[in-house]
Design a protein around this nucleic acid. Structure first.
Lengths: 226, 226
DNA sequence: CCTCACGCGATTGTCAACAAAACGTAAAAC
DNA sequence: GTTTTACGTTTTGTTGACAATCGCGTGAGG
């Protein structure tokens, strides 16, 4: 009954969320060695729950920990970012295919409305790269959950997207091609509405592949540096 | 006792490994509610490291934990197992494609020799389903690492394979088609040797899809029950 | 001047006790 | 007889202190 949403039921969960967002936003720089006591009085908790949260973060690949040498935020290279997009390509392709078979008409309609809202945001507030990124995230989020594939959604939402968002913050509006991405999103939703799983998979893979090539190009041009 | 005292650098790592194998082998039944103190004197450690290990297991999806209600081993339905194979299909397909581009000649040669050993094992010890499963695991393991895609290998080896092995133990030799699988393995390795990434991906996807259909058929026939 | 070893400090890993919340039981009220 | 509520027990979440290990600075030797 009582759902005080902001209240994490346990301190360890709280610490986990705080640490995760701190890593994603870059508040904790990659490669930075962080001491436990330092984290303790930063987030105002004790070492017990903290260590539990650190274990979870480590298991998710956001931290690396050497036995008695402390933990440090994972630092990833440009190549690894590209590999991440390759994984997204096949996994979100699968998600799109299954979503075409399993999403309800209601969900698809809501997704279309979401795209309308995104379009308005792009037209009106041209510079709001952050909200564009959030819109993009929302789109992929809905398809992942719409696949009705529990483990797939868990891996995408609980692992890959956090990694990608980490880079997003770091590279600041890496996407940079809002109109094109929106058009691709529309085509994907059309395929979903027609229940054409194969086409949805193909379009989603091409969409993510295009995003990857876009980032890769910018990195090679030196516009983006990691 | 049953654990070879491999001095893991930390007690939490030890607990993590023990718990993980206990879950995979079915020593801890799915859906079983397990108390912390019970685990403590079973593995002879205290609650501090144990909770850290539990956090990691939960993050990997092998445990589910409700705030003050304890942890229980994850129980998965037949549908979820099928979904797991769908994920494997696309991810290992990607791994095979990248492995074709990146494995060294040496590694591919070693893989061929591994298949020779598997063939001998299948011919000689016909009934040793366990070793066949291990051989299969070895094959997929090598390709995952051969992809040189760190995150991909991490997700396959650290997440999916443990899930699949959990089912393997539970269903006891679910595979059941050693000769056919070996043939498919050989074709995949041939594609790797020719550096034909596309073909390797196609064959790997078909290989896993066949395994999935095999299990699905047996479940529908009532031969296997989850 | 460089290298290696030793000891000190700091940090991590571990433990046992305290507090809080949930589940089960039982009794009382309707 | 059924439901609800209150209490006690059990289990989880948390805390602070103790012990083990590593990194680093200093000093001695080559």
């Amino acid at each position: 009954m009582n759902q005080p949403i902001i209240q994490s039921s346990t301190r360890a969960d709280e610490a986990f969320d705080c640490l995760q967002t701190a890593i994603i936003t870059g508040e904790l720089a990659p490669g930075e060695k962080i001491g436990e006591l330092e984290l303790c009085n930063r987030f105002e908790l004790t070492r017990g729950p903290l260590r539990e949260a650190l274990g979870r973060l480590e298991s998710r690949g956001l931290l690396v920990r050497r036995p008695h040498a402390g933990v440090k935020v994972v630092s990833v290279s440009a190549e690894e970012l590209m590999e991440l997009y390759r994984i997204r390509e096949v996994m979100e392709g699968l998600a799109a295919r299954q979503a075409a078979e399993r999403m309800t008409d209601e969900e698809i309609r809501a997704l279309q409305e979401t795209l309308d809202a995104h379009e308005k945001m792009i037209e009106e507030a041209k510079g709001q790269a952050y909200y564009q990124a959030e819109g993009d995230y929302d789109f992929h989020h809905r398809i992942a959950t719409g696949s009705r594939n529990t483990k797939l959604a868990q891996m995408l939402l609980g692992d890959l997207y956090y990694m990608v968002r980490m880079y997003r913050y770091r590279l600041s509006t890496s996407a940079g091609r809002p109109h094109m991405a929106l058009g691709e999103h529309r085509h994907i939703v059309e395929a979903l509405a027609r229940r054409d799983g194969e086409l949805a998979e193909f379009l989603m893979k091409r969409h993510i592949n295009a995003a990857r090539q876009n980032i890769e190009k910018k990195i090679k041009e030196g516009v983006l540096t990691i």
